[in-house]
Simulated scan of single mutants.
Amino acid sequence: MLKKLAAVRAAALSVAALSMGALCAATLSLTASPASAGSVTQPGETVGLATGAPLPQGVYFVDTFNWGVRKGDNGAADVTLGVNIPVLAWATPTKIAGARLQLLAALPALEVGVQNADHENGMYNPFLASQLAWDLGDGFGVSYLLGVYFPVGNKLGFDSTNINQRLAVSYTNDGWNLTANGIYGISTRDVSKTINPDFVNLDLTATKTLGNWTVGPVGFASWDVTSPTATYEKQSQLALGGLVGYNFSQLTLQGYLTRTVTEENYGGTDTRAWGRLILPF
């Protein structure tokens, strides 16, 4: 059962689709300035999940949601961001080169507000992906995901297509979930209404399941790796936190809290509360 739950958690990790870059884009849109943004995939959205482990065959619903405040530096306005990422994942019976083929779809939504300004809410970029996940034995698993974020024409999303690749490694024996998930996003347009750099995210998990409870530290980091314009300032950040989860038989709930340890060009430190439910059909 522990291995199954660890694998089920991979559904959310593989498909969650939103970013602090969206917060920056929305912030600048609300303040009537040219929009710029970092990662299209939200840094930290896949922590707490064994993304390297293949799912048992079946269909899963996973909802990851979070809300937080980025405190502005040097008198800058505080910015709030709320995100909801509903996901459907199908672990198909198909095997390719020994790996399970998994199909994933997400339709995220967000709400963003700037201190002393209006709030905006709406849909974010839809996400479709396919994933190959290998069970290497002795609790080790590895997966590769290839996905696409599709453009949207509102203030809160990106108006360009983003190619998303993810490589995850997990160890899930004896109730452990030790996972590193690397995410690489490639923008297909250098200049658009929202400026999209290529980016790298790294989501990290080190949790232990004891009975129905799961606890442990989590963390994430992100880096812009290109500058789409001459004046663009690359963003980077590191955040750490802790996770608590509980398994109600068919339903798994998780909650975690993260806070920025260090950042560059994000304009302030972010404190964020996350929640997740995992329901296999």
Rank of each mutant, 00 (worst) to 15 (best):
L104K: 03
A89E: 11
L101K: 09
V62R: 00
I96D: 02
A50H: 11
L107I: 14
L88G: 01
I96T: 07
A50L: 08
G58A: 02
V112H: 07
T64D: 08
L49Y: 10
V114A: 02
G75L: 11
A77C: 00
P93C: 03
G52V: 04
Q115T: 03
F65W: 15
A76W: 06
K71G: 04
G58D: 00
T64V: 12
W67M: 04
N66G: 15
L81H: 10
V112I: 14
G113Q: 10
V69D: 07
E111P: 06
L107Y: 15
T94H: 05
V112L: 13
A109G: 15
P54Y: 06
P54G: 06
A53H: 01
E111D: 13
G113A: 09
N116D: 14
R70H: 03
K95N: 07
V59C: 01
L88E: 01
V79W: 11
P86W: 08
D73H: 12
V59P: 07
D63I: 08
L104G: 03
L101S: 03
A109W: 13
L55N: 09
V112D: 05
L103Y: 07
T94M: 03
T51A: 14
G82H: 04
A97H: 07
P108L: 02
N74C: 02
Q102A: 01
N66M: 11
N74D: 11
G98Q: 10
D73M: 03
D73I: 01
P86H: 06
E111M: 09
V59A: 04
Q115S: 12
P93Q: 02
D78A: 13
V87E: 13
R100N: 14
D78F: 10
L107M: 15
L81P: 00
L101C: 09
G98V: 11
N116R: 09
G98M: 10
L88K: 00
R100E: 02
G113N: 09
I85W: 02
V83S: 13
W90L: 04
K95T: 10
G98E: 13
P108D: 02
V59K: 01
V69L: 10
A50R: 12
F65Y: 15
F65T: 15
G113E: 09
G82V: 03
G75E: 09
E111V: 06
V59L: 11
A109R: 14
Y60F: 15
A99L: 07
V114M: 07
G52K: 03
A76S: 13
L103I: 10
P54N: 05
N74H: 13
D63N: 15
L81I: 12
G52I: 06
R70P: 06
R70M: 10
K95W: 00
Q115H: 05
V114P: 15
G82D: 02
I96Q: 04
G72R: 08
P108M: 02
A91W: 05
A53Y: 04
V83E: 15
E111K: 12
